[in-house]
Nucleic acid binder design. Structure first.
Length: 301
DNA sequence: AAACCAACCTGACTGC
DNA sequence: TGCAGTCAGGTTGGTT
């Protein structure tokens, strides 16, 4: 379930279960889930076993679990990315293996007892990895009111639009320097993080902006409107538990989100635009699809 | 430096 | 029933 709202739903579900919990066992079923881990599966298991989780933190679509420090060691964490089909599930200890289970952490929580944290991932684009925490590039606090640190793998990722320290004027200034299509810029995680194909299409539809307009050609007013719509759609989707089209995209308890019912453009090819009634179109774009209303979202001649 | 594309995977669905 | 082709929520690393 992998754009900002879905990852935040997972983070929020994970946090109370893992904060303060001790990892008493790690099982790597499939090393393809560790493509971003610097060592083998056995190395991952050995490093993590016996450690205590301090929090569950997110930036954009990345999620990480900082570990309680060991004296003399640099700050470390387990960093997770769900890719296209990754899930983090909370299960009872000893629960049967999930269909696409790749890694299992058995944890012991001082208040909640034993629990299994299962990483399942059909397409294996997601991953878990051991990583060190480094100071945030801007020196300010990381996500979730945590300390000013991010995993090295996340250092290049911009703050997301729901981060209180996201700088709107820096974002708008970046747009004026980009000659590529506005949708491509929205999907560039080094400019603004957390937005994927669904919410890019939804925000552009809401702001009445054609996805292929050159970013730099947007007026300051249009850029402000777009950012406001990005925030609005992310917040609404989060409130609805995220977007689920099938059983792949679920929270830590395996439940789907409801936002698919509220989509205005994404996946609605041929249906009438909810605003003007003109049929929505799907256009191939960057090896994926854009959905929009050609009447409401005019491309300049 | 910025922009683009192929590659990494599995599974569901469509049309012949 | 089978088989080929298409599509799916993302990121990276290499090439222009």
């Amino acid at each position: 379930m992998p754009e900002l709202p879905e990852v935040e739903v997972v983070r929020a579900g994970l946090a109370p279960a893992v904060t303060g919990a001790r990892v008493c066992g790690v099982t790597v079923h499939d090393e393809r889930a560790l493509t971003r881990h610097p060592g083998t599966g056995a190395d991952f298991e050995a490093r993590l076993t016996g450690r205590t989780i301090r929090a569950a933190v997110r930036r954009g679509k990345f999620l990480w679990l900082p570990l309680v420090p060991v004296p003399g060691e640099e700050p470390v964490c387990v960093v997770a990315h769900l890719g296209m089909s990754g899930q983090l599930l909370l299960r009872s200890t000893g629960a049967p293996q999930e269909r696409h289970e790749r890694v299992r952490l058995d944890v012991q929580h001082p208040d909640h007892g034993e629990l299994a944290v299962v990483f399942a991932d059909q397409r294996t684009f997601g991953s878990l990895a051991w990583d060190t925490l480094v100071p945030t590039p801007d020196g300010a606090a990381g996500a979730g009111g945590d300390d000013p640190a991010v995993p090295t793998q996340v250092a290049h990722i911009a703050r997301d639009p729901l981060d209180p320290l996201f700088d709107d004027s820096v974002f708008r200034a970046a747009l004026t320097r980009k000659r590529s299509a506005i949708k491509r810029v929205l999907l560039d995680q080094t400019v603004v993080s957390g937005i994927g194909n669904i919410y890019a299409d939804e925000a552009l539809w809401a702001a009445r902006i054609h996805p292929e307009i050159v970013a730099a050609s947007l007026s300051s007013r249009a850029a402000r409107r777009l950012l406001a719509e990005v925030r609005d759609v992310l917040a609404k989707a989060l409130a609805e538990g995220g977007t689920s089209f099938d059983a792949q995209y679920v929270n830590v308890n395996g439940q789907a989100g409801y936002f698919a019912h509220s989509l205005n453009a994404y996946g609605r090819t041929g249906e009438p635009c909810p605003r003007c009634g003109h049929p929505l179109v799907r256009v191939s774009f960057t090896n994926r699809s854009s959905h929009f209303c050609a009447r409401c979202q005019k491309r300049p001649e």
